[in-house]
Design a protein around this nucleic acid. Structure first.
Length: 468
RNA sequence: GGCGACAUAGCCAAGUGGUAAGGCAGAGGUCUGCAAAAUCUCCAUCCCCGGUUCAAAUCCGGGUGUCGCCUCCA
């Protein structure tokens, strides 16, 4: 398994800390708003990472934080004139709902910052005691200069940051590269008691505390969007290095951005679409396909036409499987049971694995799905072989998070009476066809189509399906 | 100013030294009363210039263009 490690800027062979186990942490949202479709890319991608390791037989522990105290939440609570924790609850619930709609498997743990406040305070206190952080005017800052390794993840040097003219002047800081661990609260803001007075945590400590609490002082993979490399992950790492003298994670993975017309989608640029809006327009699997058809580290342009194409691709898979099962009078469980070893199909499976193990080349892995799809659709192939191919298609598709709705879709929800009526009409039409009354025959087909019943005349007779 | 990424057909997109995966769209053939499906075939020399090499989309140098990080952000 090759994984591109942001720390070393190259692909490395993945070696787990403990054989057969994966400890994975990926940054979740700060819950001050509905998340946008760009955020969804990260959630979907790390869902695929998790699924793939599970597919390989790993015992995976996946932890994702929910940051529910932060400046932006406070700002939003003022804007909506509601208490901050009500805002946090509202948007964390929305986050959970939207992820479920996106077909993202629930992480094993989703801790919230406010639940681990004593641990956060203790962590900061320890940093102060060991001389890596200092109190200043009721705030606490991490001293970047105190840690020689500071900047190793993002490749930034403290001196270079000085050159950036946009670093905000903060006279409480000893050095402009220092970052806030604890903020003294202003009147009306939520407060926690601390050794430095009333205040609230800065942005980064909660992730260190929560990840280490569930995964240990060092874990396998830490992930998130590319923008988190600096400052968020750099600052998490700094705290862990300072206190534990060990890397926080062995592999750092970052997904690229979603752009809109070439420019990144972000809440601050206000050029975003919420995932919930997009989910109302496209299926979750089409959205997933859209993301997975490009390598995760590359930027991807939000494009409705391409998502529509993705919609076609996904429904093509579904209809291939559906048609095959229909023609063989097989059920969903027959399909699942048909997964078997087959030399020819194993080649495709091997290719799929090869793609995935090359730093999650999902775009290439998807091509393997199409290889299988071609077999499933092909009349020229042996029926048993086609069924096996379909079983593998579903099996590998599920690794990428597809086919979650397959079982449901296959259930024939047509009421008995409707079914009998449709079949009656078709049998009457068959008589008309025997008489070669094509005009009437076609008219019946058109009228049924108008009602959403699609019929196809094959050599073996006529098949029908309900559209939509 | 510092650091980094990307540039492949009409569109999306793999490919990191051996002569361009896959998808969508398109063209043509077979099949079919027609439609659909199926099936077969066709459709790029990889931003520009120079270099290394028997051999480069793939390595090196120089351009051009687009984007990102350095400030909240997946």
């Amino acid at each position: 398994m090759q994984i591109y490690n942001t720390m070393t800027r190259k692909k490395e062979e993945f070696i787990p800390l403990e054989a057969g186990k994966l400890k994975l942490y990926a940054c979740g949202p700060t819950v001050y708003n509905y998340f946008h479709i760009g955020n969804a890319r990260a959630f979907i991608f790390f869902d695929v990472v998790r699924r793939y390791f599970e597919h390989l037989g790993y015992d995976v522990t996946y932890v994702q934080n929910i940051t529910d105290i932060d400046d932006k939440i406070i700002a939003q609570s003022i804007e909506e004139k509601i208490e901050f924790h009500t805002i946090a609850d509202k948007y964390s619930n929305a986050f959970l709902e939207d992820c479920a709609r996106l077909g993202v498997k629930k992480p094993h743990h989703q801790p919230r910052a406010t639940e681990v406040m004593p641990a956060i305070i203790a962590y900061i206190d320890e940093l102060v005691k060991q001389g890596y952080a200092y109190e200043s005017g009721g705030d606490v800052y991490f001293s970047a200069e105190s840690l020689p390794e500071y900047g190793s993840l993002s490749g930034k040097k403290i001196e270079d940051q000085m050159a950036g003219a946009r670093v905000e002047e903060n006279t409480l800081k000893r050095h402009s590269a220092d970052f806030t661990l604890w903020k003294k609260s202003k009147p009306g803001e939520p407060i926690w008691q601390s050794p430095w007075g009333e205040g609230r945590p800065g942005w980064h400590t909660e992730c260190v505390v929560m990840s280490q609490q569930y995964l240990g002082e060092t874990f396998d993979i830490h992930g998130g969007g590319i923008d988190l490399v600096f400052p968020h992950h750099e600052n998490e790492l700094a705290q862990a290095l300072a206190l534990r003298h060990k890397p926080l994670a062995n592999y750092w993975m970052h997904n690229g951005f979603l752009n809109v017309e070439g420019v990144k989608m972000s809440k601050s640029l206000n050029n975003f679409f919420t995932a919930r809006d997009i989910l109302d327009q496209f299926s979750a699997e089409a959205i997933r396909f859209f993301f997975l058809s490009k390598h995760y580290r590359s930027p991807i342009d939000f494009n409705r036409e391409i998502i529509e194409e993705s919609e076609k691709a996904v429904s093509n898979f579904y209809s291939s499987i559906k048609q095959l099962l229909l023609s063989q009078s097989k059920s969903y469980s027959d399909l699942k049971a048909a997964l078997a070893i087959d030399p020819e199909l194993d080649k495709i499976k091997l290719e799929f694995d090869r793609s995935m193990q090359d730093d999650f080349n999902t775009a290439k892995a998807v091509a393997s799905l199409f290889d299988l799809n071609r077999i499933v659709r092909s009349d020229a192939q042996d029926p048993a072989f086609r069924l096996k191919a379909a079983a593998l298609l579903v099996n590998l598709g599920e690794v990428l998070g597809f086919f979650g709705k397959l079982e449901e879709t296959l259930k024939d929800k047509t009421p008995d009476l409707s079914r009998q009526l449709i079949e009656l009409i078709i049998s009457l039409r068959a008589k008309v066809r025997e008489e070669k009354n094509w005009a009437l025959s076609d008219s019946i087909r058109d009228q049924l189509a108008a009602l959403g019943v699609e019929i196809k005349d094959g050599k073996e007779g006529c098949t029908w399906s309900i559209k939509g």
